[in-house]
């Protein structure tokens, strides 16, 4: 996977830049097209068996996709392109708890998650997957059932555009509810800061996984949460519980960072063991990184 870059056209994938783009659909398209434009290898390989078109060979394309008959006829290299069959129901779960409202770089985690969900939805819809959306805090707040209908993308974008912060987070509860509701195997993409009881969260995701659902967990964190860059003494007020803690950053930083590292390591270890794709995202980094994570996970799944 190519490392995200801040130069060239990829700068448009910067979440802060994306945030200034008008509609959610446009944002999603910008993210998806921008991310895919830099790829040398088709991400769609193996997704579908239905022929779509020929395309001139480009370095990086798999040699097995070259249509040798066409080469014999035209003495030019063409590769076959296929379209995926729409057989997957994908649900985007976006954490809308108050902790997701934190943003230190102009983009809150909720906004970042919304862009990511929009991009993923756009991508899935383009692949003719049925895509749905669930917004939750300590309960399911918004729900858009999966569908591959042409109007589904717009409905998805509207839902994401209207996503607002809720109350305290309880990630596991909606996951268990969803696991109970699912009757068909599909895919669940969780976008959350996972600032909840880790054991409960993992149990909720395992519940989904147990029902045969592919699960991808995007762990969205702000750079401040990852580095704790504060310098002066402050009263830190929790966004969800309103608890206040007076702390001297220089004293607490080491302990804090160790706990964050331990939390991330816990999620990474436990989810991998459960067969759940786990991707930690920094809201200051380009969104294509997240998309690539998703596509990479899909390619492994296929």
């Amino acid at each position: 996977m190519a490392a995200p870059s801040s130069g060239g056209e990829l700068r448009f994938l910067d979440p802060a830049v994306i945030a200034r783009i008008g509609s959610m659909e446009l944002k999603a398209r910008t993210i998806v097209e921008g991310a895919l434009a830099g790829l040398h290898r088709s991400p769609f390989k193996g997704f579908s068996v239905e022929f779509a078109e020929y395309r001139q060979y480009m370095p990086g394309d798999d040699l097995s996709t070259i249509d040798w008959k066409v080469f014999a006829r035209s003495d030019r290299y063409y590769v076959k392109k296929f379209e995926e069959e729409t057989t997957t129901e994908c649900r985007l779960l976006l954490d809308m708890s108050r902790s997701m409202g934190y943003g230190s770089r102009g983009v809150s985690k909720l906004e970042f998650g919304s862009y990511l969900a929009a991009a993923l939805g756009y991508l899935m819809h383009r692949q003719r997957d049925a895509v749905g959306f669930i917004g939750f805090d300590d309960r399911i707040v918004t729900m858009l059932p999966p569908s591959a209908r042409p109007g589904q993308l717009r409905a998805l974008m509207v839902s994401l555009d209207r996503a607002t912060l809720g109350e305290r987070a309880n990630v596991s509860k909606p996951l268990h509810q969803l696991a109970q509701m699912l009757v068909k195997r599909g895919m669940v993409i969780l976008i959350s800061d996972l600032l909840d009881d880790p054991e409960q969260v993992v149990n909720g995701l395992k519940h989904l996984r147990f029902r045969g659902t592919d699960v991808i967990a995007f762990h969205v964190l702000d750079p401040d949460e990852l580095t704790f860059p504060f310098e002066s003494v402050a009263r830190f007020r929790d966004l969800e519980s309103d608890d206040e803690v007076m702390a001297t950053p220089s004293i607490v930083r080491e302990t804090y960072l160790r706990q964050i590292r331990d939390l991330n390591a816990f999620y990474e270890r436990e989810l991998r063991l459960a067969g759940i794709d786990y991707c930690r995202l920094d809201t200051s980094r380009p969104l294509d990184f997240a998309l690539m994570s998703y596509l990479s996970a899909r390619s492994r799944a296929v």
């Binding site: 600032l195 949460e225 009263r235 830190f236 803690v245 004293i251 607490v252 804090y256 939390l263």
Partner: peptide, 16 residues
Amino acid sequence: PLVPFSAVRFLKRAPV
């Protein structure tokens, strides 16, 4: 100063 923060739960466990 009062600083809203999302991961205060980890500060509580720090020596503060």
